[in-house]
């Protein structure tokens, strides 16, 4: 219950912070749009006043929040649409892409992390793949994938299922490096801990030790990485969407930030905060299930 309250607080804090911070940046999308079309200064001033953009920020904030409480996130300044519609239209492609890519990245990342701890050829391969993922920015992986595979695989849009393959692979490859890196370091460290040595001295098969004892503990730090990366994938999907000509939240965010279409940006921050708070709850719960020692913690706070 307390956690749920804090989750709600996260959304409120993020919204409030974004609301006031955005208003510290001069300019707004509406004036710019009218100016480009050829409106006079008086006409622009009139339009701003009509939209309530000249009211004191506090008054705007109260008006905005009272709408938000009722589930109304306002209208885009230039798109003639309720913010909630704009986001809803684009949410599914981004969320599905993130979900698929993240699932693949977890398997790929943990697998690479384990591989990297081995000696010999496979170890080198694992560490090589890990480094490659960390050392290549997303826009380059994507560009190379398009150059290499666009002749064989359709990659634009979201209508055909084939067009999802490249973006998923590229995004998964990008997220895999961080997961592998943390998994690798922790497996190395856990290997020398007391309970592993006990298990080994009991004569258990190395693979059993890896699966039952090492991974359970070593992968705990990976959990928050997964949840924070997932949040990043939702908000930062802009590069994938731009390269692969896809519809999604990331592009909407970038366009709205550049144009300074405040209500849309705030709406996306609210969505992002909800997802982050939700994932944080889930992560804590998963860690709780995976590591019995945490249960002790919550009953014995210092």
């Amino acid at each position: 219950m307390q956690r749920l309250l804090f989750a709600l607080l996260t959304v409120w804090l993020a919204l409030t912070a974004s609301f006031f911070l955005l208003r510290l940046i001069p300019g707004d999308a509406l004036s710019a749009q009218l100016d480009l079309g050829g409106a006079s200064r008086a006409e622009i001033a009139q339009a701003r006043a009509d939209m309530g953009l000249d009211d004191p920020p506090i008054a705007q904030y109260i008006r905005y929040m009272s709408g938000v409480v009722r589930g109304d996130f306002g209208y885009s300044l230039i798109r003639l649409f309720p913010v909630s519609d704009l986001i809803a239209q684009r949410f599914a492609p981004t969320a599905l892409l993130a979900l698929f890519a993240m699932s693949l990245a977890v398997i790929w990342g943990v697998g690479t992390g384990i591989l990297a701890t081995l000696n010999g050829f496979w170890g080198i391969m694992g560490r090589g793949m890990m480094t490659l993922s960390l050392a290549t920015p997303l826009y380059w992986t994507g560009t190379l994938a398009i150059i290499a595979f666009s002749a064989y695989l359709p990659y634009s849009g979201v209508d055909e299922w084939q067009a999802w393959i490249l973006p998923i692979l590229v995004l998964a490859f990008h997220s895999m490096g961080g997961i592998a890196r943390v998994a690798f370091a922790n497996i190395q460290a856990v290997k020398s801990l007391s309970f592993v040595i006990v298990a080994r001295s009991k004569g258990l098969h190395p693979r059993t030790i890896m699966r039952r004892h090492i991974l359970r503990v070593a992968l705990l730090p990976v959990l928050p990485i997964i949840s924070t990366q997932f949040g990043f994938l939702l908000g930062g999907a802009v590069i994938t969407e731009t390269l692969f000509v896809r519809v999604g939240i990331g592009r909407l965010l970038l366009d709205s930030v550049i144009a300074q279409d405040y209500p849309v940006v705030q709406g996306i921050v609210a969505l992002s905060a909800m997802i982050v708070a939700f994932l944080s709850l889930i992560t804590d719960y998963c860690a709780y299930l995976a590591d019995p020692r945490l249960r002790w913690m919550d009953n014995n706070t210092p």
Partner: peptide
């Protein structure tokens, strides 16, 4: 919970923004 609140608020802000 309070510090997690701060962390999550930071996470909720897209890096570009």
């Amino acid at each position: 919970s309070s510090l997690v609140l701060v962390m999550n608020t930071l996470l909720a802000f897209p890096p570009l923004l």
